[in-house]
């Protein structure tokens, strides 16, 4: 099984530096303070934001006097993966992902503006096909914007992998299973800062630079898509991004 064919195309027909089709929508729910839906290829994530509000009873111990605290919960629908897996809410993988996303947004949200309050970020994965963390972060960014919560900058995330000296951007599930090292990162594009990064697998030190560059470019592409959507503010779908494929 080759990740890149000899003619330079990946398994699904993309070139190594191309993102999957990104589609998004904001304001999907009426009851939540902010909500968004994003599709990156076949990875579909719904995000809902509640807040800022007074800390709920069981979280009262985490209240801070000078800033708000962010509470994040990640859950995957049972039909989201090809094989139906019964996932309980508090399992390790979910908690792990929630913690990472919480950490990501604590760096991006202007928490000092909301002291003594709580912001809830809820993420629901409807269909998972690789790059879960990245789709969740992108969905949460949009939802936070929809909720009107002040942030330092957008947060865009993208994943990349390295095979035979070429870096592949925005990996899907099949490419994840192929066993190469996978690098995901969340970036604030205008400020050009990395607020979260994670590397799975083993690569040589010399190759790290190439991977980081690839991921940064991917994130900037995603930023371009999300930004363009923002300009068309009446919640219609968008299906074009500069470096992704024609629709």
């Amino acid at each position: 099984f080759e990740l890149i064919s000899d003619e330079g195309y990946r398994f699904d027909g993309r070139k190594p530096s191309e993102l999957r089709r990104v589609r998004c929508n904001m304001g999907v729910f009426t009851q939540a303070d902010g909500s968004a839906y994003i599709e990156q290829g076949n990875t579909k994530v719904l995000a809902a934001i509640y807040g800022p509000h007074e800390a709920s009873n069981n979280m009262r111990s985490r209240v801070c006097l000078d800033k708000c605290f962010i509470n994040c919960e990640f859950s995957q629908a049972m039909f989201s993966s090809a094989e139906r897996k019964k996932r309980s809410r508090g399992d390790r993988k979910g908690k792990d992902m929630s913690a990472h996303i919480k950490q990501t947004f604590e760096a991006a949200v202007r928490t000092q503006l909301y002291p003594r309050s709580q912001i809830d970020i809820y993420l629901q994965v409807l269909h998972s096909d690789g790059s879960l963390y990245c789709a969740c972060v992108n969905a949460a960014t949009l939802a936070l914007i929809d909720a009107g919560i002040a942030m330092k900058d957008y947060v865009c995330a993208c994943s990349a992998s390295l095979t035979k000296e070429t870096s592949l951007i925005d990996i899907n599930h099949v490419e994840e299973l192929a066993g190469c090292a996978e690098f995901s990162a969340a970036i604030m594009p205008k400020l050009d800062q990395i607020i979260y990064s994670e590397l799975n697998g083993r690569i040589h030190q010399d190759e790290l630079g190439q991977l980081v560059d690839a991921v940064t470019n991917g994130c900037k592409d995603i930023f371009a898509v999300i930004d363009r959507f923002e300009v068309i503010t009446d919640n219609t779908e968008i299906a074009v991004s500069p470096r992704s494929l024609h629709s």
């Binding site: 719904l46 809410r89 629901q124």
Partner: peptide, 16 residues
């Protein structure tokens, strides 16, 4: 049948 109440619907659905 299995029903899952997502915390998207209500913060009180968080956790269990």
């Amino acid at each position: 049948f299995h029903v899952d109440c997502s915390p998207n619907a209500d913060p009180s659905f968080q956790g269990r």
